[in-house]
Design a protein around this nucleic acid. Structure first.
Length: 572
DNA sequence: GCCGTTTTCGGCCCGACTGTTTTCAGTCG
């Protein structure tokens, strides 16, 4: 039995939801939510910390009770207080919380007066008209709730970054076309380059807000206009993505941008710092004890007044960035321009859609110095994986192309890690390759112990350089397979192995949290696109986003090395 | 439930919008 941080966080979130519906002290609710966030953001396994006897109350937001709670969850797999609460509060109620317009208070009334415990109950009550007997429930609220019920049934309310991006860019373009619009910026988790976004928060500086707002809600992809106010308008697009447009004055632009970029946890920490000085920070500015505005025009000014340097949006998660800033320890984050090559590329030899030459030329256009062709190995039969014979044929072609082309093509492989942890090709082939990626492509559901042993064994193979898409997760589709990541990091460190940040927008694997933890463990990274077509080469941007969120610098990334440096690094 | 050189009680970030009121509660970000 093993317990992932995410599972512990889920217990705390559920506690928070149920306590909230029960009408408990809102600060207690907040304490649970806060603890869930802390647990989620940890790169290290809480389970192992507990077993090592670490004092959990050292963690921020974890005190005596929650520390005991974590131990209980780790050792028994259950949290007795939650089990008790579950008996008291019907399970269905917490899914009602996700409905727009329904919070704990209204849910409680619905339950107590009409025994509503599910989306179905709620629909029926609303359609029967009985719901209007509750004070505060009018026709508009009810129709909003019914809309929300429909949406909740569809589930999946977050959008992958790459899904949201074209909309964000297009709305930006659309707004800029309107007369009087001076500035437009997409804030929120989008600006922090989070792998998924819940909605788009767009700030606009304009002389004529009313007209801009009017114009905004007429954007052709708008399905419904949710609200239209004096500082904010909200719409839902046809794909159910919510977009908020906020009017911001030029003088408050920086404060507003900071405020709406978040994260919430980052903002709260900064605001508390202000509070300690007797100051106040809101979306309009930084105000001193005499309520005089002392900053707000730009973001840099807001940070400066708080004694901080500018903190890149990707870092604003309250994962230590404020403390690091105070100690001049903020990372100099890697940029897309630092990348000199792509080390995970497929070709028509296996399941790629373009020839090696086509991929190489496309990479050349991106300004790369080198690429590695890393087709699949023979175990992956569905992808026509290469055996020892066919790979030699591929080498001949690469040799010819290297004569012909400016860009350097490295001979690589994405070699399957077999169930027993051995690699899918013979050592004499592996040893002749410039770069060997190892990857798990099947048997995702081994036990944590077995999976860890499997990958550790592969990492100990002297010819393997990089562990590709290390956890196997697919955003919104497949969970990471269970592995002891602390152990994986330890072995990588000892063996000098590289971890990939796979830039495919549905993978982004390693994720930000693990990347940060792995960096702290002293591990190097490859940020690569796993491209199967020429267009996919542009996914590099997403990989770099995730790397930045994981605090990575140029020095941490092997494909930011020049070709010569890289070759030296890859030498066994 | 957490937290603490103005500490072990009494605070806990802050403002906008909506729908329903007729001065505000609930919700949201």
């Amino acid at each position: 039995m093993s317990m992932l941080n995410g599972e512990i966080a889920a217990v705390f979130k559920e506690m928070a939801d149920l306590l909230e519906i029960k009408g408990e002290n809102p600060f207690k609710v907040r304490a649970y939510r806060n603890a869930a966030r802390v647990v989620e953001n940890m790169g290290k396994s809480l389970e192992s910390l507990v077993k090592e006897g670490y004092d959990l109350t050292e963690l921020p937001g974890i005190g005596h009770d929650l520390s005991e709670a974590i131990e209980e969850i780790v050792f028994s797999g259950k949290f007795s207080k939650l089990e008790e609460l579950k008996k008291e509060i019907p399970q269905g109620l917490k899914e009602l919380l996700s409905i727009e317009g329904l919070g704990p208070k209204r849910i409680r009334v619905l339950y107590e007066k009409f025994n509503v415990t599910s989306l179905e109950d709620l629909s029926k009550l609303a359609e029967s008209g009985e719901i209007y007997k509750i004070k505060g429930f009018g026709p508009k609220l009810v129709s909003k709730i019914l809309e929300g019920v429909k949406l909740a049934k569809k589930s999946g309310r977050r959008f992958r970054f790459d899904t949201a991006k074209p909309y964000a860019e297009d709305i930006k373009r659309y707004l800029f076309e309107f007369k009087g619009v001076i500035k437009v910026e997409v804030a929120g988790s989008y600006r922090r380059r989070k792998e998924t976004v819940g909605d788009l928060d767009i700030l606009v500086v304009a002389e004529n807000w009313e007209e801009v707002s009017e114009y905004f809600v007429k954007y052709d992809k708008v399905k419904t206009v949710v609200s239209k106010g004096e500082t904010r308008s909200t719409v839902i697009l046809q794909n159910d993505l919510q977009v908020d447009l906020r009017s911001v004055s030029r003088e408050s632009y920086g404060s507003a941008l900071h405020y709406f970029t978040g994260s919430k946890a980052h903002n709260i920490k900064i605001r508390k710092m202000a509070q300690e000085r007797g100051w106040k920070i809101n979306e309009y500015g930084v105000f001193n004890e005499k309520n005089e505005k002392i900053a707000g025009e730009d973001e840099e000014g807001v940070y400066e007044k708080m004694g901080l340097c500018f903190i890149e949006p990707e870092l604003r998660e309250d994962r230590g960035e404020i403390e690091a800033c105070l100690q001049n320890g903020l990372p100099d984050l890697i940029k897309r321009e630092d990348i000199k090559g792509d080390l995970h590329i497929h070709s028509v030899y296996t399941d790629g859609k373009a020839s090696i030459k086509e991929m190489a030329l496309a990479a050349s256009e991106l300004g790369y110095e080198y690429i590695a062709v890393t087709d699949h190995s023979k175990h992956l039969t569905v992808a026509k994986g290469l055996d020892e014979e066919r790979i030699k044929i591929q080498w001949e072609e690469i040799d010819r192309l290297n004569e012909e082309l400016e860009i350097t093509i490295l001979k690589g492989i994405e070699c399957d890690i077999l169930e027993d942890g051995s690699l899918d090709l013979k050592d004499e082939i592996l040893s002749s390759l410039d770069i060997v990626l190892g990857a798990v492509h099947y048997k995702f559901n081994l036990s944590k112990k077995e999976q860890t042993e499997r990958v550790v064994k592969a990492l100990k193979n002297p010819y393997l350089h990089v562990l590709a898409h290390p956890t196997g997760r697919l955003i919104g589709a497949r969970e990471a397979f269970e592995m002891d990541m602390d152990e994986i990091f330890k072995v990588c460190r000892e063996e000098g192995k590289v971890l990939e940040i796979n830039a495919q927008p549905q993978r982004l694997d390693l994720n930000d949290i693990y990347a940060k933890a792995a960096k702290e463990a002293g591990i190097k990274f490859s940020i690569s696109t796993d491209s199967h077509t020429r267009d996919c080469l542009s996914f590099m941007e997403y990989g770099v986003n995730q790397a930045r969120r994981g605090w990575l610098e140029k020095e941490d990334v092997i494909n930011a090395l020049t070709l010569n440096e890289l070759k030296k690094f890859l030498k066994r």
